[in-house]
Design a protein around this nucleic acid. Structure first.
Lengths: 195, 195
DNA sequence: GTCTATAGCTCGATAGAC
DNA sequence: GTCTATCGAGCTATAGAC
């Protein structure tokens, strides 16, 4: 499979995130995951970075821009796993690799994954966002081929929700990463009838 | 199956929620779903009810107590669907009815379901909460029998996450309730090998 | 059980020096 | 790019009258 080359304006990250902005995003992501977007103040972000609020405002003009940048970064992480999977030659191989990548991403970042994209403020914007729709469309095509209609949409949503949701779920709280990974992958595969 | 009688202290709702408290909970749930817990102020809840903040504080002494009461009410709703399912005579029947109830609950309350229990502040408390653990344990037993170990925990978490997560997912945003229900139920069944 | 009024604080955001 | 200092608004929570 060939990685489709997209015009720069369509890519998730236009490639202009400075190092300072990256630190803000990382700190904000962590705090958003612990307290929610609405429960996180700019003062908390500044404290986490060891700077003042004014220094944070130098990087992003509003709190909303920070939230959007964080969501964008998360989306870019997901798209990177799609790019990686599409390097496989066969569709079956790409599909399997995407599942592996999704499971790894969900487990490695249990505390943060989805928290941003699930946030009410962000989630309301998601369906109309071009980047989000593109990423979801690529995932769906990789997971299900070109199976059309609502069935495909719901199945894709269920696989994504099952993997990332189960990783965050309190029921999986006690499990160590390796065990969780070992359980998630075969179950996700079976859901897609890969086994 | 017999509905296990539990001592009152172990039940989710000790049964002492006044009508006024119920109105606060309903308004708060709606606002939490739209703006997140941290993004909802007591002023917003009071406005939604057409009263002043002081009137709300008469029902609950802190905002945190409101959030906990809302989470408790959501949990009680889930437990009610378990009680209903356990009225079936056979385990297979109870399992099927629980799945139907879960799908219906998730679809009917797409906008609100999970939003509370997913909130970082609430979710952090969940694993240690006795009511939460009891509800999850009952679900797991109904869905999987007594299948032990981490496999059972992860499978239970995946089913729950898949159903409620897919219902909220932007990919399912355009679908009407009937279509969504019709897609969710068979897929959830298949995931549990019921078909 | 609802109101007005207010205390005390933190919020997001800006101005301007270095 | 970081700081201090500040603004006005909004926040949680309380006091006390009706």
């Amino acid at each position: 499979m060939s990685t489709a080359e997209l015009p720069d304006t369509q890519r998730v990250n236009p490639g202009t995130a400075t190092a300072a902005q990256g630190r803000v995003i990382a700190a904000a992501l962590d705090l958003f995951a612990r307290h929610g977007v609405g429960g996180t103040s700019l003062q908390m972000i500044a404290d986490e970075l060891g700077v003042t609020k004014a220094a944070v405002y130098r990087q992003y003009k509003t709190k909303e821009q920070i939230a959007l940048a964080v969501a964008d970064a998360e989306l870019a992480r997901m798209e990177a796993t799609i790019d990686d999977a599409e390097e496989e030659q066969s569709w079956a191989g790409a599909r399997e690799r995407l599942l592996i990548n999704m499971v790894n991403l969900a487990v490695e970042r249990r505390q943060t994954v989805g928290v941003i994209l699930m946030d009410p403020g962000i989630a309301r914007l998601a369906p109309k966002n071009a980047s989000f729709r593109r990423v979801m469309g690529r995932m769906r095509r990789l997971l299900l081929g070109n199976e059309p209609g609502p069935d495909g949409a719901v199945r894709t949503a269920m696989v994504i929700a099952a993997i990332s949701g189960a990783a965050v779920h309190p029921l999986a709280f006690d499990l160590d990463d390796d065990t969780l990974r070992a359980q998630l992958l075969p179950l996700a595969k079976r859901f897609l009838d890969l086994t």
